[in-house]
Amino acid sequence: MNYRWLLRAKRWAQNPPSEGRVKFIAAIILLCAALFAIDRLVGWPQWLTPNQVPRGRF
């Protein structure tokens, strides 16, 4: 295990993140999980699929 991670864990134990930051990160994770679930249930929309670009062209 890297010593930096141990020092970071020590800092987090001494100064934990605020409740607002924890809620913000939880909301982002829930949003990502919801988008993933919608993608799996409904599928990828055709309008979001990029056009085929021939090789060698930009």
Rank of each mutant, 00 (worst) to 15 (best):
L6W: 15
I29D: 14
W12K: 05
Q14R: 15
A9N: 09
P50E: 15
N2S: 04
N2G: 04
K10V: 08
S18L: 02
G56V: 01
F24M: 06
R40D: 01
I38T: 05
L41P: 00
I25K: 11
T49V: 15
V42Q: 05
V22L: 10
W12P: 00
C32D: 09
L35P: 00
W12V: 01
Q46N: 13
R57H: 07
L7R: 07
W44I: 13
W44G: 07
P54M: 00
L41N: 00
L7I: 06
R4F: 12
A33E: 02
Q14C: 06
T49A: 09
Q14D: 14
N2P: 03
R40M: 05
V42N: 08
R55Q: 13
L6F: 12
P54H: 01
I28Y: 03
L6H: 11
Q14V: 07
I38L: 08
N15F: 11
A33M: 08
Q46W: 07
F24P: 00
P45V: 15
P45I: 14
P50G: 09
I29K: 14
T49H: 15
A27Q: 10
Q14G: 08
A33N: 06
I29N: 11
W47H: 11
F36N: 07
E19H: 02
W5N: 15
N2D: 11
K10F: 13
L35Y: 00
T49N: 13
L6E: 15
P45F: 13
Q46L: 09
S18D: 05
I29C: 08
P50Y: 09
N2Y: 00
A26M: 03
R11Q: 11
N51T: 11
L41Q: 01
T49F: 10
W5H: 14
N15M: 07
F58S: 10
L48D: 05
R4S: 11
I25Q: 13
M1I: 10
G56H: 04
L6G: 14
A33F: 04
N51Q: 13
A26P: 00
L41H: 00
F36K: 07
Y3F: 05
G56F: 02
L31F: 06
R8P: 00
L35I: 06
